[in-house]
């Protein structure tokens, strides 16, 4: 029997024996990637986001000027050879400010989304997995938090702890996870009725493994899609908070803050609003295209033959 099986194994093409917890980047995900790479808009979105992230990381080395170097003599110049996107009312280079602002905006976007992702996925998975009273209790909690006025919560946080970027991530993440939890909980509740979960339970697969290997990979599709929709939402929230003076503090800036200060002098110096607005819009569109593309690529119906 052993020898026969060894002979059978020879039929398996790969030269190395498959390892148990090897990352499987094949098939379903390969399919998804193939579909994504055929979607021009989504690919363009992905490229744009990647480009912005790289620029944001390298900004301290790439930026043509210092973000707080003022020269009042240069106050609010339109775009020129020396200052491609012009300067602001304090004579600071706008391109530099946008690059530095991108660091804040992207970081808030990604980190707050990550916070909401982790809390939301865990919360939703646990509620859906256990069901019954635990589920009811956890989801009612979500409903209550939904109903709380978010702004009061943030203002309270800022008053108690002072303005602080980390707090900003936490505050925004703490709001955004609610929707994520609802989405994941719905998915998991549906999955729990599937027979493969019953099969896993009846074969003695431990609970943690069922959650990590059987449930979470199957909710990943909708989660990824919702994540790409959350990032722009979070950036807009940050812009809103900064506009109210609750976000980042000058001389640091963010896209949202640049735009909202630009609005004040829109008639005299329109470029101060237009360029940050364009960058923000570009990011939002890119993420939306990428999200739509991912949703289509990961659609299980289109994954079936």
């Amino acid at each position: 029997m052993q020898a026969q099986a060894k002979a059978l194994l020879q039929q398996i093409k790969p030269t190395r024996a498959p390892r148990y917890d090897e990352d499987h980047g094949t098939s379903l995900w390969a399919d998804a990637w193939l579909k994504l790479s055929r979607n021009r808009l989504a690919l363009l979105g992905l490229l744009t986001i990647t480009f912005m992230t790289v620029v944001a990381i390298l900004t301290p080395w790439l930026a043509p000027y210092s973000y707080d170097a003022q020269d009042l003599n240069l106050g609010a110049l339109p775009p020129s050879g020396a200052h491609w996107l012009g300067t602001d009312t304090l004579g600071r280079d706008l391109l530099t400010r946008i690059m530095y602002g991108g660091r804040v905006s992207l970081m808030v976007g990604f980190l707050a989304t990550a916070v909401s992702l982790i809390i939301g996925v865990l919360w939703g998975t646990i509620a859906g997995y256990f069901g019954g009273r635990i589920d009811a209790l956890m989801m009612r909690t979500v409903d209550v938090l939904y109903a709380l006025p978010f702004m009061i919560f943030v203002i309270l946080l800022m008053v108690v702890f002072g303005r602080n970027l980390v707090l900003l991530f936490l505050a925004i993440g703490a709001v955004e996870w609610l929707t994520m939890a609802r989405i994941v909980r719905g998915q998991v509740t549906g999955l729990m009725k599937m027979e493969f979960i019953e099969a896993a339970i009846s074969m003695g697969i431990p609970r943690s493994r069922i959650i990590l290997r059987h449930l979470i990979p199957n909710v990943l599709g909708p989660v990824i899609v919702y994540t790409t929709l959350t990032i722009p939402q979070v950036m807009l929230l940050e812009a809103f908070l900064s506009f109210l003076g609750l976000g980042v503090q000058p001389p640091m800036s963010s896209w949202g803050l640049l735009m909202s200060t630009g609005v004040e002098s829109m008639e005299e110096f329109p470029w101060l609003m237009i360029f940050p607005g364009l960058v923000l819009a570009l990011t939002l569109f890119s993420l939306n295209f990428l999200g739509d593309g991912l949703r289509d690529a990961l659609d299980p119906k289109s994954a079936k033959e």
Binding site: S27, F196, H214, P217
Partner: peptide, 8 residues
């Protein structure tokens, strides 16, 4: 429904 679609 008895096989996990994400597992080989």
């Amino acid at each position: 429904s008895s096989l996990n679609p994400r597992m080989t």
